[in-house]
Amino acid sequence: MAILELENITKSFGQLKVADGISLVVPKGQALGIIGPNGAGKSTLFNLITGNLLPDAGTVKFEGRDVTRMPAMQRCFAGIGRSFQIPQPFDNLSVFENLLVAAMHGRNMDQRAVQDDCAMILEQTELLAVANRPAGGLSLLQRKRLEMARALATDPKLLLLDEIAGGLTDAECVALIDTIRAVHVRGVTIIWIEHVLHALNSVVERLLVLDFGKVIGVGQPDEIMKRQDVREIYLGIEV
């Protein structure tokens, strides 16, 4: 069964077409990777899926339901969780409270019902030691972890991750991959935008290539990576 269906999604910023008739079906439980050069429209596609932006044309369906015009808040209730490429923490809240607010509101539950789960997510994302620090004071790496942790706190069925592996050491990257795998194993569908291809390809079972707002290829990661046009786009990013 499909968890997400995009049909002919189009979005322009002035003259610039950033989503140009994108259609895509994501089966429930899949881990899908998205690659493409900077400015291809990857983050915009996420914003269109989450409701932070509305498309000019086309439809977004989540679990068979048309959510094209649904506000971001309700899509969170429906089960779409996301991280932002540029971390957007609640600066004056502690790291723990960043998760609490997401868990309490995203799942509509009391603090008591979610606090242990939030602590567990902090353990899993290696943020426990800074749990009581204001999120505004975190390093970039910690902010990226917080993005993922906060998205997990909403208990999503579909998790959208936007470039969370950039700048990590090998050991950190391995830890991140483990975390994402663990989430995936629980049955959460994952769409992951990433430039760090070896990290991405060790998790995802399907790869989508986006360029100038168009899907130029989607399929098995190794087959996609063999394609000449994809290699040309990626020459210079990573070999």
Binding site: T50, G51, N52, P71, A72, M73, C76, F77, G81, R82, F84, Q88, P89, F90, D91, N92, L93, E97, N98, V101, A102, H105, G106, R107, N108, R150, A151, A153, T154
Partner: peptide, 14 residues
């Protein structure tokens, strides 16, 4: 507090 700090992110967490 979440809305004051970041309205867009607040919407995204429900």
């Amino acid at each position: 507090s979440a809305v004051r700090d970041n309205p867009e992110a607040a919407k995204s967490v429900g």
